[in-house]
Design a binder for these strands. Structure first.
Lengths: 362, 362
DNA sequence: CTGTTAGCGCCTTCAA
DNA sequence: TTGAAGGCGCTAACAG
């Protein structure tokens, strides 16, 4: 990875490295027009490319922003990543990517790695969990983040704060009103369907999932309904599929729902994210059931790639890209104006989208 | 971004920085057990995190791998990115992300930025174009890559070689048999459908698109058919949608195809990628047409998120993640064994998947 | 096996 | 305005 250095450029231009530095890389003081031109010519005649590592070392700041996701191929994270990337480019920064599969231990590692690379800021997009088994690692993650912030790093977390994080300076949260929106969804669904509801949730302890479940139940109650049964499975397509299989059996058996009334006229299914909903729908279809005739189904996120799915999936639309952008901007170096609004949770809103998959009149 | 330094650790442990370095960061020589322990304790009592920038400067290698894609939210690229990320982790490297929208100018910028950060290698996943308007920028990109390689960088390109790249040492190509696979697809489709075919392609000059079009035509000819008409539009969902609208009109008019025979019994549509195919299908549906009754439709890529689409989309399955992994591995530092197989195009195979969307018996 | 001495490439005081 | 000197944190040759 050798390349021509600033010193070489300077020599070629017959000036000191300091001067060359001033003209090539932004400095307050502007060298003379004539000399500047000479330096510039020397630079691109040599194909000079500044060594960002050295610059970073000297200035102790890297222009790097670290992004942590569960899985970059998951459309939810991919959409957020796009927003982060966009905002990063605006700020002329580059993004470093880390994927963790959602394990707090891995997230801690990622934070450490970013810290090692002296990333100026970190965006954590994956939802955190409060499972007891993850307790230790969550604590370690919190400690790592804490240290990172104390060393001047900026971090933005999407969704929920990191468990046990002490909210030091430089710690921002982009909160997503999962609970509220899920409640709204429940209310609207309940208005058009008077049968039983079932929730397909992620593993217990996953904040995003738990919030959405809680919200949905709250909405049901607000609509004068009893709480829905909750089926737990993994937070992805196959989790949805598995749950869907179980529900299909139940629907076909024409069994009774939790409320005791016959469920022979189908079920209202709420999957805590779109990908799970699609999985569940696929399972129902596999079992010969039809949507929305035999079961109404709704998801959450409004994933773009899934919009052409038929029947169109009812869901809650979230401004994923915008969330990524917001998170990134929240970690931007403080403006010279000093108008920092640290730690003030940034507002994000979503929108209930009722579509074909929950239409009550077939 | 201040943090404790190696020197501080060394002082605390009562040893020289060199020794501390040897125990903390991998070195050939192993310090004494006793001293090592002291250093390690000092290190984590201080919460020491090595400064990767400094390490990189000193060793002139950064452990960074740059990934260039058009759009990280596009499931095609997201899948490749996942593979890259995975392989990078195996090699204990981090990935730097750049998105370019496919513009060669941006790609050149990205390469320069990676070079500045002294990335050890670069993976270019976006398909290149040979449009005349892009000529200059393509040349610049080639030059930039060339320089990067000459300075010891490793680059892997997915799909097509960069136009005009001189294939210096360290330049690898993971070639995807787009043409061959498209031909196969055409042959198989032609076996089950004797009506007209139409191709929905991307903009002229886009290699990936052009190769697939060429291959499809070749396959048709191999099956004793005349060439299909080609509709050009943008290489994404909306491009497919637009083209789909036009075709819908044509189908509904029951017009005649290029071959002169009535097209009243529908059309065989090949969209050069899945996302476009889905867009086209959506357009047809909007116009009240049904698939495969009124039109058979096939895509390319076999995007995972789209597998639950109904009717299931016929397509060509590509091992996207594997491609990402291969590309990444190709750029790994030469093995000590010296068994480098530089520039030998790595083999990738795909598979034609005939599904419901092209079933001939409705 | 350990410590000392030089840089890696750049930026930033400080004098000139 | 320009140049000279020192240091950012670490590693890699050398000595000891």
């Amino acid at each position: 990875m050798a390349a021509s250095t600033l010193t070489e450029v300077a020599r070629l231009a017959g000036v000191s490295p300091a001067t060359a530095s001033r003209v090539l890389n932004g400095s307050a003081r502007k060298p003379g027009k004539d000399i500047a031109e000479r330096v510039r010519q020397a630079a691109d005649s040599l194909g000079y490319i500044p060594n960002a590592q050295a610059q970073g070392l000297a200035k102790s700041s890297s222009g790097l922003i670290g992004l942590i996701v569960h899985d970059i191929a998951d459309p939810y994270f991919a959409a957020i990543a796009r927003g982060v990337q966009e905002a990063a480019r605006e700020q002329r920064r580059m993004v470093l990517l880390a994927t963790t599969g959602g394990a707090p231990g891995e997230e801690k590692e990622a934070v450490a790695a970013f810290a090692a690379r002296r990333a100026d800021s970190i965006v954590i997009a994956g939802s955190r969990s409060s499972r007891a088994e993850d307790g230790d690692q969550n604590a370690e993650l919190a400690a790592e983040l804490d240290r990172y912030c104390r060393n001047g790093g900026q971090v933005a977390v999407v969704g929920h704060p990191v468990v046990g994080a002490a909210a030091p300076e430089g710690y921002h949260v982009v909160s997503v009103p999962n609970q509220e929106l899920a409640a709204k969804l429940a209310v609207e669904l309940a208005a058009g369907w008077d049968g039983d509801f079932v929730i397909i949730g992620g593993p217990e302890g996953l904040f995003t999932s738990d919030d959405r479940i809680r919200g949905f139940q709250e909405g049901l109650s607000r609509a004068g309904r009893g709480p829905a049964e909750v089926l737990r499975s993994s937070f992805n397509r196959s989790g949805g599929y598995d749950a869907g299989l179980k529900l299909a059996a139940r629907i076909k058996a024409g069994g009774t729902g939790q409320s005791g009334r016959p469920a022979g006229n189908g079920l209202g299914i709420f999957a805590v994210n779109d990908v799970m909903a699609i999985g569940a729908a696929a399972a129902l279809r596999t079992e010969g059931l039809r949507i929305p005739r035999d079961a109404r189904i709704a998801g959450f996120d409004d994933i773009e790639t899934l919009r052409d799915f038929r029947p169109a999936l009812s869901t809650v639309s979230l401004p994923l890209e915008e969330i990524g952008r917001l998170a990134t901007r929240a970690t931007a170096p403080p403006t010279a104006d000093g108008d920092e609004q640290d730690y003030a949770p940034l507002p994000v809103t979503g929108k209930v989208m009722l579509r074909r998959s929950t239409e009550t009149a077939d």
